[in-house]
C-alpha cells in the first residue's frame, strides 16, 4: 500500500480563463515505500503538488491517484508534516500525537501503547506533558512527525519539514528521518529547497521547473546509494563527502541553475 501517481496533472488558480496556471502536465509515479524528494525554484508548484495528494486542493486537469484511487478529500491514510509544524497549541505533546488515533477510535490501552512508542522513537519521552510552545523548533517538528507516523499512514507527505530549523537541528532531524525510514519504511513525498537534503534522504529526486510548473527531470539516487554503500556511514557529513554524493548533488544543482537562468531572460 502507498503508491502515488500524478497523471498529466494541471492546476489553475482563479477562474479558468483569467486564472494563473501553476502546474502543467505533471506526471510522476511513486512506488510503495519509495522516498521521493521534489526540488525546484520557489513558486514552481511543489507545495501545490503535495496539497493535491493530501486532498487540500483539487486538480484542474489530469488525475492524482493514491493506491490507484483518485484523491477526493483529506484523510489519515495520507499524513502531512507541515513546514510550520501546525501542532495544536492547546494540547500537550501526548494529546497531539494521540489526536489521529482517537479519530480512528483506537482503544485507550492501545493508544497509550502507540503514543509511548512514538515518544520513545522520537526521543520525546520526557516531554509528553509539555505544550508545544514550551518546546524548541526541532522538538516541535519531532512531535509533528510522531503525530503523522503514529497513524501508520500509507503515505507521508512532508513540505519542507526542516525549513524552519537551524542548521544543526536540521542535520540531526535528517539523520533521524533516515533512521526512522529504516525502522519503519513508508512511501514519502518530501519537498525541499535544499539539494543536499534531497540527495541524502531520497530514493529519487524530481526536479521541477516553473512557469508553468512541471517535472523536468528525475534523478535516481537509490542505485548509486546502494552501489556506493552510503548506508555504511553513520553521519551525514561523511556521506556528503563521498564522491558519488558530490557528483549527484552537482548534477541537480546544474539542472536547477539552468532553470533560474532561463527565468532571467
Amino acid at each position: 500500500m502507498g503508491s502515488i501517481r500524478f497523471e498529466g496533472v494541471g492546476k489553475v488558480f482563479g477562474n479558468a480563463r483569467t486564472g494563473f496556471k501553476a502546474l502543467d502536465d505533471v506526471s510522476l509515479a511513486i512506488g510503495e515505500k519509495e522516498f521521493v524528494a521534489i526540488v525546484g525554484p520557489s513558486g514552481c508548484g511543489k507545495t501545490t503538488c503535495l496539497r493535491m495528494v493530501a486532498g487540500f486542493e483539487g486538480v484542474s486537469a489530469g488525475k492524482v491517484l493514491v493506491n490507484d484511487r483518485p484523491v477526493v478529500r483529506p484523510g489519515a491514510d495520507r499524513a502531512v508534516v507541515f513546514q510550520q509544524f501546525a501542532l495544536f497549541p492547546w494540547k500537550t505533546v501526548r494529546q497531539n500525537i494521540e489526536f489521529g488515533l482517537r479519530n480512528k477510535r483506537i482503544g485507550k490501552d492501545q493508544r497509550d501503547h502507540l503514543v509511548a512508542g512514538s515518544l520513545k522513537l522520537m526521543s520525546l519521552e520526557s516531554h509528553g506533558d509539555a505544550y508545544p510552545h514550551q518546546l524548541s523548533g526541532g522538538m516541535q517538528q519531532r512531535v509533528a512527525i510522531a503525530r503523522a507516523y503514529v497513524l501508520d499512514p500509507d503515505v507521508l507527505l512532508m513540505d519542507e519539514p526542516f525549513g524552519a530549523l537551524d542548521a544543526q537541528t536540521r542535520v540531526v532531524m535528517q539523520e533521524e528521518l533516515v533512521r526512522l525510514a529504516r525502522v519503519n519504511p513508508r512511501t514519502v513525498l518530501f519537498i525541499t529547497h535544499a539539494v543536499e537534503e534531497a540527495v541524502y534522504l531520497a530514493d529519487r529526486v524530481a526536479i521541477m521547473s516553473r512557469r508553468p510548473g512541471t517535472i523536468k527531470e528525475i534523478i535516481d539516487v537509490k542505485t548509486v546509494r546502494l552501489a556506493e554503500r552510503w548506508d555504511g556511514h553513520e553521519r551525514i557529513e561523511d556521506v556528503m563527502d563521498l564522491e558519488s554524493f558530490v557528483h549527484l548533488r552537482t548534477r541537480i544543482w546544474k539542472s536547477l541553475r539552468e532553470e533560474k537562468a532561463e527565468i532571467g531572460h
Binding site: 483529506p74 495544536f88 503525530r147
Partner: peptide, 27 residues
C-alpha cells in the same frame, strides 16, 4: 481559526463534530 490547524486536523481524519468541539472551540 488558523487554516493550517484545520488542515492538520483534516489530515488526521477528523470528522465534522470533532472539528467543531476539538478545533473550532479551543482555537
Amino acid at each position: 481559526v488558523d487554516r493550517r490547524l484545520v488542515e492538520a486536523a483534516e489530515m488526521l481524519g477528523t470528522g465534522h463534530f470533532r472539528m467543531i468541539v476539538d478545533i473550532l472551540l479551543p482555537a
